[in-house]
Design a protein around this nucleic acid. Structure first.
Lengths: 129, 129
DNA sequence: TATGAGGGTTCCAGTCAGGGGAAGGTCAAG
DNA sequence: CTTGACCTTCCCCTGACTGGAACCCTCATA
């Protein structure tokens, strides 16, 4: 398989696939003409990576997850721990965003949104002046 | 005021303040020795920027907000629109993160987390194989 | 046989919002 | 006079790609 095929079958852009090779996540063979030559296992790995990235895991997490996946003697505890740490980071981000959302929502609610200059949003940003 | 004073009074790192000057958000004067020389208005602007950034506005949004703030003849509608657009982006991010959280949470719940290799998280990532 | 389309390759630069650190100038205190 | 705390500019680094330039390969068509 050439990179275009793997790209459409995995849903990942060709650029991303080349990047993943660059950083050592996959190691496709090369054809005589220099083209990358992907096996089914490469495609499978890329799909794995795509799903892990979609769950928000960092590239380094993905590297670890792949290693665990390929390690038949892994302990599921290791996978779970990684997932729990990631879950905690997601929760922290949600909490941050929620706080912004609540604050900004309040300010927006108080803003007339008309042609006059008076605005509680700017008043708040300027330090209640 | 030197940059150290402004830094501690605004809560922004000196690096950040220099960066904000670099991209034209503030224009402090210079003393004879080449040091930046901040007026109270600069400090006020930096505090404004710090609060806007804390609400998650991008630097470009901050630039617009500052311009609106300094424009006495602004329409609060313009401020409100910017804020509403930002609010929508925050909501979209929260929704994304929440979806990740829910999916990953389900997978984690099903994972024994013991010394055995069997793991629903990896099974899901590998495509249910 | 030329040529054009549509693959593929490498490498460089840019994104966003700064952070880290080097090399060097300035200032007040001891 | 020296020490230490400031300040300056400069350049590289981050994550996870994305865009583009310049060039090569293959196949179909005129």
């Amino acid at each position: 398989m050439n990179i275009g095929d793997v790209s459409s079958r995995s849903g990942l852009p060709a650029k991303t696939i080349r990047y993943y090779e660059d950083i050592g996540l996959i190691k496709p063979h090369r054809s005589a003409n220099g083209y990358r030559c992907f096996a089914e296992t490469d495609l499978h790995k890329l799909a794995f990576l795509g799903r892990a990235r979609a769950l928000g895991f960092t590239i380094e997490d993905c590297r670890t997850l792949m290693a665990l996946y390929e390690d038949e003697s892994r302990a599921s505890a290791d996978v779970k721990q990684l997932a729990l740490e990631h879950l905690a980071k997601i929760e922290a981000k949600i909490a941050d965003l929620q706080a912004m959302h609540d604050t900004l929502g309040e300010l927006v609610k108080g803003c007339a949104g008309d042609s006059r200059p008076d605005c509680p949003i700017l008043r708040d940003l300027s330090g209640e002046g």
